[in-house]
């Protein structure tokens, strides 16, 4: 049993699944467009939550939000279902495949056998598409992989019912209604406004202010926690920032690509300039990662080194503050 489905690799899983599912339903929308309209760019620092024994920093919105926002802004209807029993979850998925519907799933990463071992952590907000089934396997289109792949029936049960934070509970989703003509222009503007609001939010742990807050904390890490822990925190931060396209530089480049596309659709030259500026900010995020990696590579934590990267991060935050203020003006 196999459904017609074209796999496109993407930089980030949720954008990718959304874009792939929509393309498959005849709505040709790129990954950056999904990311921009769905306001995927975000920042929040949650020092009271620990992930892998380090404070949580998220560069993204909650799982599912990007696609939900895209749907609301383009007037699409998506069906989402969660399950309490494995049997029912399988039945619903098989039913969908029978009806020729490729289906998006939220899954845990830990049991994805096609990932390299080192990447298999208990992270539950990954997304993929199931587009077919054989006697022992499900046919999988995982947007961060170059080509399609498979998981055995047992493996798919495990990843759908992974436990812990953001447990997917078998969640599956698929578009059920797509209008013939979508109003990209208004959706783009809504998406941009939403991102500006998030990034300029007057809350100390969110957006630009959140980045500044982290910069302040980094200075204290080696004194407060000692070299080893400080290095661990920093390494975790870089992983959350740059791993498989979920934050920092990677996200800035997708956003810059979105602004470039948006400038053509809206006929707004200013957005093109802002796209270039965002690219530069993305480069600075990557420079920050390089500097940070020097610290935890040498395992020597001079206070100085921590101050240097904290300054770098502060500079990024200041530039993003100016950037999002300009962006807000450019579309109003």
């Amino acid at each position: 049993m196999q459904v017609t489905f074209t796999h496109h690799q993407s930089a980030h899983c949720e954008n990718g699944v959304a874009s792939n599912l929509l393309k498959n339903n005849g709505l040709n929308i790129s990954e950056p467009m999904v990311f921009g309209i769905g306001s995927g760019l975000f920042f929040v620092y949650l020092p009271f939550i620990k992930v892998n024994y380090a404070p949580a920093i998220s560069y993204r919105t909650l799982p599912g939000q990007i696609f939900n926002k895209v749907a609301a802004r383009l007037n699409l209807k998506i069906k989402r279902q969660k399950f309490s029993s494995v049997v029912n979850a399988n039945k619903a998925l098989d039913e969908n495949l029978k009806n020729n519907i490729p289906t998006g799933l939220q899954v845990g990463v830990y049991n994805l056998s096609y990932f390299p071992d080192e990447y298999r952590f208990h992270f539950n907000a990954h997304n993929l598409v199931v587009y077919g089934k054989t006697d022992k396997d499900y046919l999988i289109s995982d947007p961060v992989m170059e080509t399609v792949t498979t998981l055995t029936h047992e493996e798919l049960d495990k990843v759908r019912f992974a436990k812990g934070a953001f447990a997917p509970r078998g969640q599956m989703y698929y578009p059920i209604q797509i209008p013939k003509d979508v109003d990209l222009k208004s959706a783009i503007i809504k998406g941009i406004k939403n991102t500006c609001r998030d990034m300029l939010a007057p809350m100390p742990i969110v957006g630009v202010r959140g980045i500044k807050f982290v910069s302040k904390q980094i200075r204290k890490w080696p004194i407060k926690h000692g070299t080893k822990k400080a290095n661990h925190y920093l390494a975790q931060m870089v992983r959350m920032q740059e791993e498989i396209g979920t934050g920092g530089g990677g996200f800035r480049f997708i956003y810059a690509a979105f602004l470039q596309e948006a400038s053509v659709i809206l006929g707004n030259e200013e957005l093109k300039e802002l796209s270039k500026e965002m690219t530069k900010i993305g480069d600075s995020w990557r420079d920050f990662a390089v500097e940070a990696s020097r610290i935890y590579k040498n395992r020597s934590a001079k206070e100085d080194a921590y101050n240097t990267i904290a300054n770098e991060l502060l500079d990024i935050a200041n530039r993003e503050e100016i950037f999002f203020k300009k962006l807000k003006k450019a579309i109003s």
Binding site: E118, Y119, R239, E242, E243, S293
Partner: peptide, 9 residues
């Protein structure tokens, strides 16, 4: 930088 961060964890 990512490889080092990963092997660090």
């Amino acid at each position: 930088p990512k490889t080092i961060a990963l092997s660090n964890s």
